[in-house]
Amino acid sequence: MSERLVGDLSRLPSAGFSTHGLWFWAGMAFILIETTGFALAGASYIYLMNGADAWPLDAPPPALGWGTAMTALLLISLAPTMVLSHVARMRDLKATRFWALVVGVLNGLALVIRGFEFTSLNVRWDQDAYGSITWALMLLHTLHLVTDFIDTGLLTVFLFTHQVDTERFSDVDDDAFYWMFVVAAWAPIYLLVYWAPRWLS
């Protein structure tokens, strides 16, 4: 037998955070796909806007209140999210449980506000192309709010019900990163949906 054993892998750690784990890369792939989706949807908005004589075509711009509240909420939520990411990497179970709850509650609150946002868009999707693309952008982002709500919610439940090890902490860390993406994606959508009709009309 001519085998040449040149190394032993059994001493390697069995989980890693961030780029060292696999799920981080799944999240990155998802974020890459979604970023492309958001970018192209935004580009479609701008394309339709450039082709129109007036913008909005035939409706008052969306009421600012709820959208701005959403923006504020999402920005505020960044702080606990960063804390959550940090304590998860420290593998501090108590703190992770607490901050995961906080982030989950903020996420749920965002969904409630989103409900009110839809009522204050001042346009229906089947009224004209402006209405269609406005609703499309909002729905696209809402989809992400919902997925992250489910994701965060489940993880939080697991934190309280299951044994928590490095893998789970790593999941929490990845989830926190994903929430930051959802917040970042909102910024251009907020500008397009709420401010483009005001600045450019």
Binding site: E34, T36, S44, L48, D126, Q127, A129, A136
Partner: peptide, 29 residues
């Protein structure tokens, strides 16, 4: 792939719920 997903989603919503992404007289293109 997200581009075609967007294109066909717009198309199917035009067909199913009456959006106007591709209806020129209502600002579509």
């Amino acid at each position: 792939m997200p581009a075609v997903m967007l294109a066909t989603s717009f198309l199917i919503s035009d067909r199913l719920v009456g959006t106007h992404f591709f209806n020129a007289p209502e600002g579509g293109d």
